[in-house]
Design a protein around this nucleic acid. Structure first.
Length: 262
DNA sequence: TGCGAAAGAGTGCTTACGTG
DNA sequence: CACGTAAGCACTCTTTCGCA
């Protein structure tokens, strides 16, 4: 088994074995396959149960070695589903460093921090080898997160998994951070919150547009929020915006803002 | 061929807590 | 302490297929 440790001040004990720990393997795999991580369509809870319980997959890299036959033999799987799954796994090989980092499931490293890390270091090896001091230089990374990343990559098997995944064909553009061609940045320094469903944009698309314009999308409304973009069935965030006197926009309003040059 | 399980998709909401 | 992130649950509706 792996080490079990409790971080200072934390209430719960948790295994620090990460990707190697049996008790966490299912959750790790589900997270890995998740839409916002490696985005492997078709790999859900029931399938992960079968794969792990049946001893078919012990580590994440093994996922990339399974063929149609292995999957087709599972419950509720036949040729069609198995082929789709294999194709989805194949497709997931092409990813980004940020997604890959997030997919590893490092404690305290969510989507946002993964992006910050990818942007700051650019290369996986640089992150795996970074000292706590070097990690602290990353925007929004403090002592807790820095130590968590260090601890994760200090486990040899976690490193191995990362390397084996790359060996299995998982890859990304090494310079994704630096290649951002900065167009006009009308929303530079602005913080926006999205709520409800917009007529033609999904949450992700809207977020992409805003970030492309230099803006930041957060999840909660505060005094520092510049705009709340509200759509159909907006929730309590809209109420909060009104309460704090934050400017509320609809989709057209957002588009007008994005079109503002300079 | 139709039923239903599993997963996808898009969202709201809440708690805990790390950072500055 | 204020703010924002991480992490997770609940909900609803849709899509995809295995299987009877």
């Amino acid at each position: 088994g792996s080490a079990i440790a409790r971080e200072e001040g934390e209430v719960d004990w948790r295994c620090t074995g990460g990707l190697f720990c049996g008790a966490q393997r299912k959750e790790a795999m589900l997270h890995f396959a998740g839409r916002r991580a490696m985005d492997i369509e078709g790999l859900g809870g029931k399938l992960v149960d079968q794969l792990v319980d049946g001893g078919i997959v012990r580590t994440l890299p093994e996922l990339y070695k399974l063929g149609v036959a292995k999957f087709a033999a599972l419950e509720r799987m036949a040729d069609k589903s198995a082929a789709n799954l294999v194709a989805a796994i194949e497709k997931s090989k092409r990813t980004t460093l940020a997604r890959f980092l997030y997919a590893l499931g490092i404690r305290h490293v969510g989507e946002s921090t993964a992006k910050d890390l990818a942007k700051h270091f650019g290369k996986l090896d640089a992150i795996m080898d970074a000292s706590v001091e070097q990690l602290l230089e990353v925007y929004d990374v403090g002592p807790v997160v820095a130590q968590s990343i260090r601890t994760f990559f200090d486990q040899p098997h976690n490193r191995e998994v990362a390397e084996q995944l790359r060996a299995a064909g998982v890859h990304w553009d090494e310079h994704e951070g630096s290649q951002r061609k900065a167009g006009p940045q009308p929303l530079a320094g602005k913080t926006l919150v999205l709520t409800g469903s917009l007529p033609t944009l999904t949450r992700d698309e809207a977020k992409g547009l805003i970030e492309g314009a230099g803006g930041k999308v957060t999840g909660s409304v505060s005094k520092k929020t510049d705009y709340v973009v509200a759509g159909e069935e907006a929730g309590s965030k809209l109420d909060k915006a009104r309460e704090l006197g934050v400017t509320v926009l609809d989709e057209d309003g957002l588009r007008a803002l994005l079109a503002t040059l300079q």
